[in-house]
Simulated assay, not measured.
Amino acid sequence: MFKFPKTLLITLFCLTFTAQAQDMLRPYQLLDTPASTLNEATDMTYSALEQSAFEVLGQYSPYPGARVIAITHPALLQAASTKEFGGYAAALRIGLTEVDGKVQRSYANPAYWGTALQVGSLEKVSAELKDVLGDSQPFGSRKGLSNKKLANYRYMMMMPKLKDHDHLGSFTSHAAALATVRNNLASNSNELVKVFEVAIPDSEEVLFGVGIGSGDGNDAKVMGITDGGELRHTAHLPYALLVSGSDAYALAGKFRIALAFPDLGMGTFMKISSAPNAIRDSLESLTKPANDPPGR
């Protein structure tokens, strides 16, 4: 019987292991960390984006020392338009965070989020981000997640999946839904900030990015507990509300937070146990008549 040389077997094993490791996806891509101010790093990022096909949808500062820039791209919008609720994937986030005298620049990995939100791996978007912003390194999970696991992701047994999103409200029409959400965001009565709004072409879906400034689900509180690592997950924010037809939805908090922090331990998750429902309640308040109190 023919036998493979031991060195060949080892080489084949190493190649297979390397290929499998490269297939594992992580939620963020780390760019350079310039020794500059937050404003300078933001200006540098804007300057690069202005020369590209990417569209800046909005920006906000969820807490001191952090900034988020929301962007979209024609290929991203096209992918989002291919399925119902694809609108969740219509925007990507760029995070800038002051850490130890430098500014970490990162962005949400299109391959990771596109796969998890079931609109595809978004290779074109990833390639253009590399061309515009430069080389980057994946981070956000020690081992990473496979395409198969991401495509049907949940944190653990009995936790929500993508399809288990929260239904926030129903309206008489798509126009009525949009008007109600826009009016409530404009009033800012519950410390909810409109970060962006983007319409998905050839569909009745519009995605709103919402900064949350109060309650147990507020951005600063949740990130203060979950985002203590060396590399920051600022590009996780903001949460989003999706108007689809005459209804409003949001990704379940336990799904959305776990997807952004896939290595989060149960002990840390329990410290923010009230956050998922609080996030839902905050977003749900945007679907109520302006004179209705939250939770009514």
Rank of each mutant, 00 (worst) to 15 (best):
F171W: 08
G267Q: 03
G211S: 05
L8I: 12
K130Y: 05
T11Y: 11
I272D: 08
S273Y: 09
T7M: 03
V210I: 13
T7A: 09
V243W: 07
Y88E: 09
G215C: 01
T42S: 11
S274W: 04
L283S: 04
I225L: 09
A175R: 05
G253F: 14
E50H: 06
L133H: 11
L122A: 09
G245P: 04
P110H: 09
A258P: 00
R93T: 05
S141T: 13
K6D: 12
S189Q: 15
P289Q: 01
F171M: 06
V125T: 01
D292T: 06
A220W: 10
V125D: 01
T72W: 05
H233D: 08
T37H: 05
I212N: 02
I10E: 14
S187M: 10
I94D: 07
Y63G: 00
G209R: 02
D202Y: 15
P160S: 12
G65S: 00
H233F: 12
G253P: 10
P64S: 13
L264F: 11
G209K: 01
L76N: 08
I272V: 15
A75Q: 14
H165I: 09
H174I: 01
P276H: 13
S187P: 00
Y60P: 11
V206L: 06
G169F: 00
T37K: 03
I200W: 13
T287S: 07
L168K: 02
Q29Y: 11
